[in-house]
Measured scan of single mutants.
Amino acid sequence: MTFKLIINGKTLKGETTTEAVDAATAEKVFKQYANDNGLDGEWTYDDATKTFTITE
C-alpha cells in the first residue's frame, strides 16, 4: 500500500510517499524521516486517504 506524508513545517513544506504493509510501518518510516529532517510537530492520520500530516 502507498501512504503519503504531508509536511507543513516552519521551514520544510511538501509531501512524500512510502510503500508499507500497514499504517504502523508507514508511521515509523515517516517519523524517522521527520526526525532526520529536524521536524517536530503534531501528527494526524486519515485512514480513508492513507495520509499522515505533520504540522509544526
Score class of each variant (00 low, 15 high):
Thr11Gly: 10
Ile7Ser: 03
Lys4Ala: 05
Gly38Ile: 04
Ala34Tyr: 03
Thr53Trp: 08
Asn35His: 14
Asn8Pro: 03
Thr49Arg: 07
Phe30Gly: 00
Ala24Leu: 12
Asp40Met: 13
Asn8Val: 08
Phe30Arg: 00
Ala23Gln: 10
Thr53Phe: 11
Lys31Met: 10
Asp46Gly: 02
Gly14His: 11
Thr49Phe: 05
Lys10Phe: 13
Phe30Asn: 00
Asp46Val: 06
Tyr45Cys: 01
Thr25Gly: 12
Gly41Phe: 04
Trp43Ala: 01
Val29Gly: 04
Thr44Val: 08
Asp22Phe: 04
Ile54Trp: 04
Val21Cys: 07
Met1Ala: 10
Ile6Lys: 07
Thr53Gln: 05
Ala34Cys: 08
Val21Phe: 12
Asp36Phe: 08
Lys10Gly: 09
Thr25Ile: 08
Thr44Leu: 07
Gln32His: 08
Thr25Tyr: 08
Thr55Ala: 06
Glu27Phe: 15
Thr18Phe: 11
Val21Thr: 12
Phe30Val: 01
Phe52Ser: 00
Thr11Leu: 12
Asp36Ala: 15
Thr18Pro: 01
Leu39Cys: 04
Lys31Ile: 07
Trp43Pro: 01
Met1Gln: 14
Glu27His: 12
Phe30Leu: 04
Ala48Ser: 11
Tyr33Thr: 03
Gln32Asn: 10
Asp36Asn: 09
Asp46Met: 04
Lys28Gln: 12
Thr2Pro: 05
Ala20Thr: 05
Ala24Lys: 11
Asp47Met: 10
Ala20Ile: 02
Val21Arg: 07
Asn8Gln: 11
Lys4Pro: 01
Lys10Asn: 10
Gly41Pro: 02
Ile6Glu: 04
Asn35Leu: 13
Asn37Tyr: 12
Asp22Leu: 04
Thr18Glu: 04
Leu12Trp: 13
Leu5Cys: 05
Leu12Tyr: 14
Tyr33Arg: 03
Tyr33Ile: 07
Thr18Asp: 02
Thr53Ala: 05
Thr25Glu: 13
Thr53Asn: 04
Phe52Ile: 01
Lys31Thr: 05
Asp36Ile: 09
Asn8Thr: 07
Thr11Trp: 13
Thr55Met: 06
Glu56Pro: 10
Phe52Trp: 07
Lys10Ala: 10
Ala24Tyr: 12
Asn37Arg: 15
Asp46Ser: 06
Thr53Met: 10
Tyr33Ala: 03
Glu19Val: 15
Asn8Met: 13
Lys28Ile: 10
Thr51Phe: 03
Gly38Lys: 12
Thr51Asp: 01
Lys10Trp: 09
Glu15Leu: 11
Lys50Ser: 06
Lys50Asn: 10
Glu27Ser: 07
Thr49Leu: 09
Glu27Thr: 04
Ile6Val: 10
Ala34Ile: 06
Glu15Asn: 06
Lys31Ser: 05
Ala24Val: 11
Asp22His: 04
Phe52Leu: 01
Ala23His: 09
Leu12Ser: 10
Asn37Cys: 11
Glu15Val: 10
Ala26Glu: 00
Ile6Phe: 06
Trp43Leu: 06
Lys10Thr: 13
Ala34Trp: 03
Ile6Trp: 05
Thr18Leu: 08
Leu5Gln: 00
Leu5Val: 03
Thr17Leu: 12
Asp46Tyr: 04
Thr51Leu: 03
Gln32Leu: 09
Thr2Gln: 12
Lys50Cys: 06
Gly38Phe: 11
Ile7His: 04
Phe52Cys: 00
Thr51Met: 04
Ile7Tyr: 14
Thr55Cys: 05
Phe30Glu: 00
Thr2Ile: 13
Glu56His: 06
Val29Trp: 14
Thr44Lys: 09
Thr49Met: 07
Ile6Ala: 04
Val21Ile: 14
Glu19Asn: 10
Ile54Asn: 01
Thr17Tyr: 14
Lys10Leu: 12
Asn37Asp: 03
Tyr45Ser: 01
Gly38Trp: 06
Asp36Leu: 12
Tyr33Asn: 02
Thr44Pro: 00
Lys31Trp: 07
Glu19Trp: 14
Lys4Tyr: 13
Lys4Arg: 14
Asp46Ala: 04
Lys50Phe: 11
Tyr33Asp: 02
Asp47Ile: 09
Ile6Tyr: 06
Val29Arg: 09
Trp43Gly: 01
Ile6Leu: 08
Lys28Trp: 10
Lys50Met: 11
Lys31Ala: 06
Ala20His: 03
Thr53Tyr: 09
Ala20Tyr: 02
Thr55Glu: 07
Glu56Arg: 04
Gly38Arg: 08
Thr44Trp: 06
Leu12Val: 13
Asp47His: 10
Asn8Phe: 12
Lys4Gln: 05
Thr55Pro: 01
Ala26Ile: 01
Phe52Arg: 00
Ala23Pro: 09
Tyr45Gly: 00
Thr44Arg: 12
Thr25Pro: 02
Glu42Asn: 10
Glu15Pro: 04
Lys10Tyr: 08
Ala34Phe: 03
Ile54Glu: 00
Thr49Glu: 06
Ala34Gln: 03
Lys13Pro: 06
Phe3Pro: 00
Lys4Asn: 05
Ala26Leu: 01
Gly41Ala: 03
Ala48Cys: 08
